[in-house]
Design a binder for these strands. Structure first.
Lengths: 191, 191
DNA sequence: GTCATCATGTAATCTGTTACATGATTTC
DNA sequence: GAAATCATGTAACAGATTACATGATGAC
């Protein structure tokens, strides 16, 4: 029974797939175009798939019927394949966007991992580990702030919100690093 | 020439490997023990390898000479293999800890990814996306705070520092979410 | 002229996740 | 006695990174 129901099915693809699908809503693109896009968009800061993966996702989108592929011959540049989102694809994207719950954020922090074993490090190394972290966060913060200003100005509200999450993140990192460094200072004094 | 120099070689293993190696400094453990350890230690919050990966890393550590393996027969429980760090392993761990630069933090945030395509969502869905995020962050914050208190009390300074990074992170998330929700409110009013 | 960069991608590898297996022991 | 948990892992698969390839064009 219910053989004519549209397959309820698989919106359970990896996030990466939907990211690419989402970018295709901006228009027909090649794998190369998309690679540049992800490296330029804010997507960059919290999500940066390798290009070979982008190509893999494009193949999958076509297989699923979420995008169409068409070959374009070029004389001076290598031939390319352009991908365009289909109505099916738009539908899938929408239902992913609407789906809930959304997965939790995950952080990979080599710094925190090293710090966990801080007992095995000597003090100067530890201090520079945290100082590096703070320096990096300070730089990132500056980038995000410039970006946010540009995006706001351009009226790209959502992109700007994402950039602001970056700002919040880096401020948190800086405050934390400062606190940790102070703790080290106090400890040294107490010796 | 220089055939007798000790292989300068590979401290360029994945962080996961060093994480396991680091845990082995607490003593001889089985894969099962380590699995529990990573799920209990603070490591949990920013780093949570699957157990099958832990077993894979243990095999690699043995192959590298960074750990030794010994089989222990048990009658009532299944037999097990215990792994112990070697001096070589301690050396490798140290040089990883001391090495710099440390890789940058990376964040995977499905919420931010969805928000990037916020233009395709309707307002209520967007709002609940952010509200969910804030709710989640609030819960995490509570966990971290309890944890930090316990760790501080126990004198586990480094673990406590890591927990505090979690606290900073979640506070940032909450502040950001609040700001975004206010922006949505203002927008609705302005209609 | 050499080297970087644009413009397109594929192939090989490796990391990480989910699913599978198994037998004893406690819990309800 | 059925269901959950302890205790120990392996196997299969999927996601992601790095390395490889190729030819033009612009920079120095």
């Amino acid at each position: 029974m219910s053989a004519h129901l549209p397959d309820v099915e698989a919106w359970d693809l990896p996030d990466t797939t939907y990211a690419i699908l989402g970018l295709l809503t901006f228009g027909e693109r090649s794998g190369y175009d998309l690679t540049k896009l992800v490296n330029q968009t804010i997507a960059q800061f919290f999500f940066r798939p390798a290009k070979s993966q982008i190509y893999a996702e494009l193949r999958r989108l076509v297989a699923k019927g979420y995008a169409t592929e068409r070959e374009v011959a070029q004389q001076v540049r290598p031939d390319k394949r352009l991908y365009a989102i289909t109505d099916e694809g738009r539908g899938a994207l929408r239902s992913w966007l609407d789906s809930s719950p959304t997965g939790p954020d995950t952080i990979r922090s080599p710094t925190l991992l090293k710090l966990s074993f801080g007992g095995l490090m000597d003090r100067p190394t530890l201090v520079s580990l945290i100082e590096d972290q703070r320096r990096q966060a300070t730089q990132n913060l500056a980038c995000y702030e410039v970006l946010d200003a540009q995006l706001s100005e351009a009226g790209l509200m959502f992109a700007s919100m994402v950039a602001r999450r970056g700002i919040a993140h880096e401020r948190g990192a800086i405050a934390w690093a400062t606190q940790v460094l102070e703790a080290f200072d106090r400890e040294s004094d107490a010796t």
